[in-house]
Design a binder for these strands. Structure first.
Lengths: 103, 103
DNA sequence: GCTATAACTTACCAAAAGGTAACATACGTA
DNA sequence: TACGTATGTTACCTTTTGGTAAGTTATAGC
């Protein structure tokens, strides 16, 4: 049963309602990852889209970026507390896909 | 904790990973609605996008369409069982937005 | 026979998203 | 001094998305 109809869902969708954002966030649930590793975990994403997506997530405070001043470059991304608060939703979306695919 | 890494989430996102689909589905949680009523409940959606979105949801078996042979036309949409299985996720997304907005 | 109605559909155009490939960086190593 | 490395950025182009406005339908009521 729906709780109200003014619909904060609209707000949520403006933050994470794209094809790639939930996928990127999902793969960070287990902890921080190097940029290249994270990108490889998202099948089909181009380099450009990956950068663009992670920049927006960073801007919105859902992931944080840690730069190691080494050569060649090393960058790690991880969920912020705000990003991590999406954990249950991300897992539910994943589980739903798994169940639905069976049918 | 994530359950696996092959990621059925990708499958889920291909079904409902757009700006409008979750919003349309959400407003059908309480039961069937006439086309025009449903459309008015989704703020900012154009007629064209509404039609296109609902057609895809119908094609994917998430909503069903009932036509009443009257003039002027009357059409009602409602969630299928498959669509209704997204209820918890849709509510979670809405609730998350409500909580997040406070901060 | 003209009009209002709800639910579309279509044509046209503008805006945004997205792919590919080249370039940038800076240091250690061959 | 040229190369490899990881992490980007940028330019160019194509594809997709999206908005607006006009057209379509069938009948009841004026």
């Amino acid at each position: 049963m729906k709780k109200n109809s003014s619909c904060p869902l609209h707000y949520t969708m403006n933050l994470i309602g794209t094809k790639w954002k939930p996928l990127v966030l999902f793969h960070l649930l287990d902890g921080s990852l190097r940029s290249g590793v994270l990108q490889k975990k998202v099948p089909g994403i181009s380099n450009k889209m990956f950068t663009q997506t992670i920049r927006e997530l960073e801007k919105d405070g859902l992931v944080s970026r840690k730069i190691f001043p080494v050569v060649p470059p090393k960058v790690e991304y991880k969920l912020t507390d705000r990003g991590n608060s999406l954990e249950n939703i991300l897992i539910s979306l994943d589980t739903w896909g798994l169940e639905d695919y069976k049918n």
